[in-house]
Amino acid sequence: MRRIARYKLLLAACVAWACLWLPPLRSMLESDMTLHMTVQLPLLTAIGVMLAMVLRPHEPCWFADADWLGIPGVLLAIFTTSLWMLPRMLDLALGNVSIDLLKFASLPLLAGLPLGLSWPRVPALGRAFLWANLISMLATMGGLYLGAPQRLCAYYRLDQQSAAGTALVAIAIVLGLAWFIVLFIGAPSPAKPRSADKSRINERFGWGASHTFPRS
């Protein structure tokens, strides 16, 4: 990525970060459980991924070496996002501005950033495993929120909780379908010579140029 493009991306990430923190948008997104869980938290993580795209050329060598197959980075991102999916942490963030600030710092820096830096190092099978896990986790969590007879978050009503559950299940279904289409069907494209098939499959499964399609 060119230097100017990197600066633009960095600026966009910082502006998005600041806008999400400003009271009108923050209050609006946090006033509803669905918006909080399916818009604010993913956006904060996405800001971290943008930062990773900017910082990738400056990534310290020791981290690139130690982050074997992207495992530590992805694991850190999983721990951080899991933490902020807990109903208790959502309550704490809503009731205490310093905990909310912690959420705004940790999701970009400890979830999005390591995820963005580590993802290119994760092999295709690992990526498939992570996608499958994310989809099943979203569906399970959505089901739990939908089925819970009591409020799990003190700051949200039962109807908001059910709506969040429905949204999580819907996102899991859409992601699952999209993943299925990308992997097994692919987007319609003009007919290509047969020799291009292997590279197309490599591309579709996320194998980079350094990987080759297994010989049959």
Binding site: W62, D65, A66, D67, I71, P72, L75, L76
Partner: peptide, 11 residues
Amino acid sequence: KRGFIPLLGLV
């Protein structure tokens, strides 16, 4: 790679 185990342990 070198440093993987300590980093994984820390995470």
